[in-house]
């Protein structure tokens, strides 16, 4: 079972990962966006770390709902409402159970990803976060490691795509040849989920 500590570890690992990769995310965003994705994600997850410390939520669902709400209120760019919705919807789907199964998390995360699609109106192949999240969540039914691999492959696969959503879509064909920053950070989020599972021994 995945308990509240597992979800705290996941959020801490995500904060550490966006910290570590901030420059790379911003560099990718400077090619096809407005060069703030790394710093936005850093600010958002630093605020998540702080609020989890302060409010000390007691269930997996509460951790993710609080983290999501914090991202919406602190990021300042489109990634705030998108990642905020992803975590919050996943958290709501987990309800108030004190611990959840891998299967429950996979299903809840799938509903979070669906909410991201609904909010942003993007589809697979549009060169967005969804190009990492959709294959990632599909593979999550198999294993955490498979989800990480699928999400990373999905992010890499955005390189030849032409952006059809968000600011990069204004670039038309010039968006081709660059990896999408949102897909890259989405792959990071899923990689930290796998990392938290492997390190912490998420349970049986």
């Amino acid at each position: 079972m995945l308990d509240v500590d597992f979800f705290r570890r996941w959020m801490a690992a995500a904060a550490a990962a966006v910290d570590r990769e901030a420059d790379r995310l911003t560099e990718l965003d400077s090619a096809i966006g407005d060069a703030d994705h790394g710093s936005n994600m850093q600010r958002g997850f630093a605020a998540v770390t702080a609020v989890l410390e302060k409010e000390d939520p007691q269930t997996p669902g509460a951790v993710l709902v609080l983290a999501g709400r914090q991202l919406i209120s602190t990021v300042g760019g489109a990634s705030g409402p998108l990642y905020g919705t992803l975590l919050r919807r996943t958290g709501k789907a987990l309800g108030d159970a004190p611990a959840v199964t891998d299967q429950q998390l996979a299903e809840a995360f799938a509903s979070g990803v669906a909410a991201v699609g609904q909010l942003g109106g993007a589809q697979a192949g549009d060169k967005t976060m969804l190009d990492a999240l959709l294959p990632g969540v599909e593979a999550l039914g198999t294993s955490y490691a498979a989800a990480r691999e699928a999400a990373e492959a999905g992010a890499t696969a955005t390189v030849p795509m032409q952006a059809r959503k968000g600011r990069a879509s204004y670039l038309g064909e010039r968006s081709i040849g660059h990896q999408d920053p949102g897909a890259t950070s989405s792959a990071l989020l899923i990689a930290t989920l796998a990392e938290s599972y492997e390190r912490g021994g998420g349970g049986s």
Binding site: I72, A78, G80, P81, L82, G84, L119
Partner: peptide
């Protein structure tokens, strides 16, 4: 545009 649209939508969904 962009995050203005998404932020308000996300807030309304909450």
């Amino acid at each position: 545009l962009g995050s203005a649209v998404l932020t308000v939508k996300a807030m309304l969904a909450e």
